[in-house]
Every structure is written in structure tokens, then in C-alpha cells.
Design a protein around this nucleic acid. Sequence first.
DNA 1: GTGAAAGCGCTAACAT
DNA 2: ATGTTAGCGCTTTCAC
Lengths: 347, 347
Amino acid sequence: MSSERGRPPTLEHVARLAGVSRATVSRVVNGVDSVDPELREVVQQAIAETGYVPNRAARSLVTRRTGAVALVVSEPEHHNAGGRFTGPVLGDPFFGRVVTGMVSFLRPRGIHPLLMLVDSAEARTDLLGQVRQGEIDGIVLVSIDPQDPLPELLAAAEVPTVLFARPAKDVPISFVDVAHEHGARLAAERLVGHGCTDIGTVSGPLDTPAGKDRLAGFRAAMTAHGVAEVPSVEGDFTQNGGESAMHRLLAQRPGLDGVFVANDQMALGAVAALRDAGRAVPADVAVVGFDDNGIAAACHPPLTTVRQPVEDMAAEMARILTDRLERPGGPPDAVIFQPTLVIRESS
Amino acid sequence: MSSERGRPPTLEHVARLAGVSRATVSRVVNGVDSVDPELREVVQQAIAETGYVPNRAARSLVTRRTGAVALVVSEPEHHNAGGRFTGPVLGDPFFGRVVTGMVSFLRPRGIHPLLMLVDSAEARTDLLGQVRQGEIDGIVLVSIDPQDPLPELLAAAEVPTVLFARPAKDVPISFVDVAHEHGARLAAERLVGHGCTDIGTVSGPLDTPAGKDRLAGFRAAMTAHGVAEVPSVEGDFTQNGGESAMHRLLAQRPGLDGVFVANDQMALGAVAALRDAGRAVPADVAVVGFDDNGIAAACHPPLTTVRQPVEDMAAEMARILTDRLERPGGPPDAVIFQPTLVIRESS
DNA sequence: GTGAAAGCGCTAACAT
DNA sequence: ATGTTAGCGCTTTCAC
């Protein structure tokens, strides 16, 4: 009972046991078909017997591919001393949903994502370095800031990358997104169906695709319902931002009885503002959010909201990425998911 | 302008440029001090000039270490078809805080955590396999279920592991935790300081250390304040569980004017139950939660709660782990963090 | 269809 | 203090 653990079996061991060369075992392991079925059988037997598992380091040393993909979260710097403040993406249950979705696709294929946070120019450089070094084959990118240069950098460096949400600038890069306009229409319909007659909206930042598209979709839907002018104020996707935006909207439209808030975070703030102003939700004013990000169900009143199928979207990102790693090239993919309306109590 | 990217520089290139052997360059790169300062200078120059970065695969092929650590989240199976339902850990902002903390320590050291979810016996086996194969050097483990066999398995396999929170069973394994009793005392003091005279508690599951210790600490503190008997009902750390527990507590103690709820999730449910019963928070009954998990600040009323310094704890986990990887052996570490009371509006 | 042999880039004895 | 050398485990021509 020495402390020696015994090295794991190698190709060599398997080859010897099967009475063939390493090359043949390698072929079997990698599913090359030019192997005699009988021999293949023997080899597989030997593999099972030894419990052989390929050594990744050795393999990637020669193939120059690791098979590794990274989940990179790019957030603007938090300007805090130790880098220990949890940012908007990581602080939201959204992040866990992305992870869940990715893993649901990746794990069955034996691949585990590397986790990387990028919040500075230095971190960006490091990331590119990793890629150049072949430590990472591809990237699933969650980027929150429309000014973020990372998507462009990655695209320019031809790093296989899939983005969550359409890029703010027109970068040739694959992405997955929800049909924002359609989601906004769902919200509009809920509000008018609910009987609201004085409807407004708190939009997201208009320099983001999500902000723009949700607003546009909402307006279009309201127009279709005969309301040409929809009062709107721009928010910043944060709870505080939503609260102050709601106050402004209320000042502008005291008679408001229904509001579409472009994300749940802001919707929470909006509800607070409404409460503050003495308006009950949904009795006095109905509110619909967007995202269904986890707190939507936990808050009071539970939020009626437009749900992004984040897990499915993340799984699709992983699928697209692995697909591109297998056969590179071709134009970027763009797949759009349909959101659904989740009815709770706020409208 | 061919499509060839040109291979990254190797030790060989640097060596040639510096006019030394690969071994010397290797020494410089790895910080071995038996290198002539002048030569070292020359080599570093060459490294900078070539933009050399060590190839991990090659390195770990010979060292039999990858330098990789995994963040593994072990959740009981979700019993859902596609494995695409976000579980309790991943669905909570807590997860992002753990990641933030780990990364704050790891990234400056050039290491990126691998993300692995373990929710089945099969996934457990795979994980052990990865470790045996040397794909992972160490593990930061977040395990939610007191019955989870993973901590024991890892300890038995002598895999360097650091656990978030003290293990339910007495496994010889390093961990990081909060001083639950102390936190509970903070809560008790807040409640009595607030003037509450009929105080109860919704505890966590009593088969978990956190559940037990928070209850024990709370009772001890109340005893110190002359209250020998504290009414308590056991919850399950979920929002719904907290809601029903609160209802039971209320039935048992109609005059209740203060309650310590053993985590924020349950506190949310408790507030709902209170509201349901027509009691205003904090006017009629004051409530204190535990964790400060993100929704605590966002809900209404914002929750006064005992904050776990999760980011710091996670960073410490990473520190302990890397430390053990460098010099293995020795008894398990256990480091306990002091929680703090965050006063908001619920008490 | 199968085997022999040459490396992938690095570290770690061992020499010097 | 530095260089030489022998692999780490695997894939991949190239012969057969």
C-alpha cells in the first residue's frame, strides 16, 4: 500500500494488451473507419479492460486544439479596489441560467467550459493571448456594454465566438437572441387586453439593440391598436434607473394605468415608484416586465413578464460554437428565439 | 497575406534569440533563481521581443499537472427532462458571487476555473475520472444537499478540495464558512434592540449545519437576553417553505412582533405570509434574514439581513486550494468568516 | 488495413 | 550556473 497512485493507462498499454500498434489504437479511439472490424473489437476490449482514457494534454500538444471552450463574461470595470464587487451580469440569476443551458449541451459531449471574466483592457489582451496560444478553441460571450470592443476584437482575430444578443455595432459574428419586437408586442397586447387605456413604457438604453427593439416593437403594437403616440422614458436597465424613470413617466402622464417596462430589474424599481406615488399594482396601474430573470417570480406582486428562454438560448450558443469548431468557416449564424408571456399578478 | 497564422513562438525560438539553451529559458520562465542575473535579463528581453507564452499542453504533459481548478456545483437532480432547469444554486445570485470571488484570486495568477455541474451519480463518476486523468488539479465545491456523497468521495480519493460551508457529515476536508451563531446573534440583537418582545424564528433544515447553527446561535442569544423559550418552526431554505413556515409560526404565536428567518429566500416567503395575514413589515412585525443574497436589497421592504461575505469566502477557497496544490498534505483547513448585519427596512 | 517513426513544446535529470 | 538529453502520450505521415 504505497503512496504511489499508479499512472493511468496509456495508448501503449492498450496496444500491448491488444497486440497491435499504438497507431491502431489511436485510430479506434478517434473513430477512423479504416480499421478492421475484428481488430477494432479487440482494441475496444482492451480499452475497456484497462480503463483507458486519452490524455488531453498529449493530444492537444499534437493537434494544437484543446477542445476547450470558454464562457466569457465581459463587464465594464467596477472601479472597486479588490475587483471583488459582483457586477450586473454575475449578480443576476441570468448568469446561472446561461451556465445551465451551456452545460446541458456541453457536458454530454465531455466538454467543460472555462470561466473567464473580462473587465479591463488587460484582461482582454490576456484573453486574446490565451486564444492565440490555443488554450481555448472557442468562446461563448456575454457582453453587456454596447461600447465593448471585445466582440469586434474577437471577430477580427477570427476566434470562433457566439454572442448572447445581437451586437450593438454591426460585427460579423454569430449570435443568439430573442425576438424583442415580438416580446414587446406580447406585452402591449396584455396591457390593452387588461383594459388599460393610458399606456406608457419605460424603455431600455436606446444605444442597445434590446432597448431599441423592445421600444420599437411596443410602439408598433400600440399603433396597431390605434394608439399612435406612446409616452416613453428611457431607463438604463437597472432597478434604480427604473424607479426614477417611472417617476418621470408618472409626472408626464399622471393618468397612466398600464406600463411596459423593458426589463424586470427596472420593473422592480417601477413598482417601487408606483407604490411610492400611491398607485397600487395592478389595481391602479398594470405592469409588464421583460426577461423573467428570477426575481420576477419572487417579488411582490409577482411580475407578469416576457420570458426569454435563456437556458435554451445558451444551449444553442454552445451548439453553434461546437459546430463551428468542427467545420470552420461560413457566414455567422444568427438564431432568434421566441419569447413567451408569463402571466403573474402585476397585470 | 496567406491564411496561415504562424505558430506562436516556442522556447526554442526564445533560446535561439537569446543565444542560450532551452533549459535556461525554461528556468527563467519558471522563476528558478540559479540563473545569472545578466542572462536572465537577456532572456526576458527575448521573451518580450517574441511575445512568448508557455504552451500549457506541453508543460502539463511533462509535469502531469494542468494547473486547472474546477468550480463544481453539486445539486440534487432536478428530475427534469432535458437537464435544463436551473437549480437552487445556479438560480441564485449567490453563484455569481462565488464566481466573482474565485476569479478575483485566480485570474491574477493566470488560472481560470473550469465549470462543472454534478447532479447525478454518472456525473460524479465522470468527475472522479477527470481528476484521475489529471485534467483537474483541485476543486472548489459548492454542495447543497447534506446527503451529497461527493465531499466524502473527493476526500477519500485525496483530491485537493475546498468546500463552501462545513460538511454535514464529519469529512476530513477543507472548508470555508461563516460564523453562523454569531450571525444569528446579530439578528437577535437587532430584533430586541428594535423593541420586539414576542420573537420567533423560522429555521433552516435541521439536518444542515447552517440550519442547526443559526438556530442554536439565535436561541443562545435570546437566552442571554432572558428569553429561554424561542418559538421556532423548521423551513427548507426555499421561498415557499418560508411562507408556509411563517404561517405555521403565526398560528402558533399570534402576537409575534419579530422574526429571524434563517435565509433571505425564506424571508421573502415569510414577508409574503405576513402580508397575507395582514401584518405590516416592519410596523407590526420586524424581520431579519440571513445571507444578503441580492434579492434582499431589491425586494419590498428591503430586507435587514445578516450578510455572508461570499466573495471573500470564495476568494479564500481559491487561496487555500492553490496553496494546497503547491504544498500538499497537512490537515484540512477551516476558515470562518464573520458576518455583518446589513440594516435596511424590514427591521 | 496496419505498423514504424517522427515529432508537438516542454521539464527534469544528469553532465559539465 | 548552464547545456545536453531523454522523454511525457499522443497523432500523423509514410511505408508496407
